[in-house]
Write a protein that binds this DNA or RNA. Structure first.
Lengths: 210, 210
DNA sequence: TCCACTATTTATCAATTGAAAAATAAGCTG
DNA sequence: CAGCTTATTTTTCAATTGATAAATAGTGGA
C-alpha cells in the first residue's frame, strides 16, 4: 500500500487567499521571525510553493498586515458615531462593543504589537486613521451633546481621548497578550471608560474656557 | 604601521555587567531575534566571548529581562503611596511622574512588549506585582480619603484601576513604540487620569453600595 | 486519449545563525 | 624576567534560513 503523495491542486486565487488567511494566524502565534518552512508546514504544503505566490517573505508579511488592519474596519461605524438620534453614551457603547469584538482577538492584537515593534509604516497610518475616525469624532460628539462645541478641538481634549481609548485597548492587551485574569465583563470596562470620558472631557473644556 | 589588535582585558564581573547593560539597549533597539554577532560588534568584542559569560543566548536574554524589570522599582514608592500626610492626588501625581520617568524609555517599553509577546513568565509576575503594589494600594487610598472604605475592594474597582493605569501606559506606547506626536506635556495625561480615577472610582463604589 | 499548462514538489544553494574548540595574549605573582 | 592564569580572539561546525532551478503531476481542452 504505497503512500500516495496527496498533492492538493488548487486554483491560483483560492490558494493565495488561503495562504494569507492562515499566515495571519501563524505569524500572530509565532511572530514574524518564524521561518517560511514552519509556515508552509502549518499550511500543509512545501516551502517553495509560497514563493510562487509571494516574491519574498517581506511581501507576504505586508499582505498579512493589510488583511489585519485594513479589512476589519466597518464603514457603518463612521455613520453610527455621528448618529445623533441616539445618545452619545449609547453610540459609544454600541461602537466599542463591536470594535472590541473585532480587535480583541489573538491574531489582531499580536500582529498589531509585533508590527509596532518592527516599526512598520502601516501601523502609524492605522493610528492616524483611529485618531481621525474615532478620537476626534467622539470628542466632537460628546462636546456637542453637552452644548460646549463652540470652539474647535484642542490638543488637550484629543489627548484625553487617547488616554481613555488606551485604557480600553489595554484591557485587550492584558487579556490576550499577557493572559491575565481580567474582569469577566468587557462591557463593564467599556461603560466606565465612556462615563469617565464624557465627564472628564467636559471638565477639561470648561476648565480651558477661562 | 601594523594595526594593533587592541585587546581590552577586563575583570570578569565588570565585563559581565557591561554586557548585560549594553545588551538591554541592543535588544530593545534590534529585537531579540538579532544575532549575537551583531550584539558583540556593538560591544566591541568578538562573538564567542559572549559565551564565556552566558551559556546560551537564551540565558543572556533572561538576564536582560531581569535587569529591566526587577531593578527599576524603587522601594520608596511603596511608602509614598500610603503616606497620608499628603493628599492622594499629590501622591499619585508624584508617583506617576517618577514611575513614568523610569518606564517611558525606549529600552523598558520595547523589552516589556517584546517579552510579553514571547510569553515570558517574568512578564506576568511583573503585572501581578503592579496589581498588588499599585492598583490595589491606590484604590484603597482613594476610597479611604473619600471615607468609603468600609468594604473590601471589589473586582470592579480593581478593573477600573487597570483601565486608568493602562491609559497612562498607552501614552508611553504611542510615544516610544509608535513614535506618534503625543501631547507634549506628560503631566497633563497624568493629572487628568488621576482626576478621572478618583472621580469614577468613588462613583463605582457608591453605585455598588446599593 | 493525448497534450499543454501550471500548480506543486524535490533538490539545492549561499548566507546567517548559535555554539564549541583551539590558539593567543594580557596581566598578575613570585 | 619567568610562569601561570584566564580573558579574548581565531577558526570552525552543524543547523537553519530565504530563495532559486529543475523535476513532477494534476487538470482541463482539443
Amino acid at each position: 500500500m504505497p503512500h500516495k503523495s496527496v498533492r492538493q491542486r488548487l486554483p491560483y486565487d483560492e490558494r493565495r487567499e488561503q495562504f494569507v488567511e492562515k499566515a495571519v494566524q501563524f505569524f500572530a502565534r509565532e511572530g514574524f521571525e518564524s521561518s517560511t518552512r514552519d509556515l508552509a508546514r502549518s499550511l500543509g504544503v512545501t516551502q517553495p510553493l509560497l514563493y510562487r505566490y509571494f516574491p519574498s517573505k517581506e511581501d507576504l508579511i505586508r499582505e498579512v498586515y493589510e488583511a489585519v488592519y485594513l479589512q476589519r474596519w466597518r464603514d457603518e461605524w463612521n455613520d453610527l458615531l455621528i448618529d445623533r438620534s441616539k445618545s452619545v453614551t449609547d453610540r459609544l457603547n454600541l461602537f466599542y462593543t463591536q470594535y472590541t469584538d473585532v480587535i480583541f482577538r489573538d491574531d489582531w492584537m499580536r500582529i498589531f504589537l509585533f508590527s509596532g515593534l518592527k516599526g512598520i509604516g502601516l501601523n502609524r497610518e492605522y493610528l492616524l486613521f483611529i485618531r481621525q475616525n474615532l478620537i476626534e469624532v467622539i470628542t466632537r460628539e460628546i462636546l456637542a451633546e453637552h452644548h460646549v462645541d463652540q470652539m474647535p478641538l484642542s490638543d488637550d481634549e484629543i489627548e484625553f481621548g487617547w488616554t481613555i481609548h488606551g485604557g480600553i485597548f489595554y484591557y485587550g492587551v492584558r487579556l490576550l497578550i499577557y493572559n491575565m485574569a481580567v474582569h469577566p465583563d468587557k462591557s463593564f470596562v467599556i461603560e466606565n471608560s465612556i462615563q469617565a470620558w464624557t465627564h472628564q472631557l467636559v471638565a477639561i473644556r470648561k476648565h480651558n474656557l477661562n
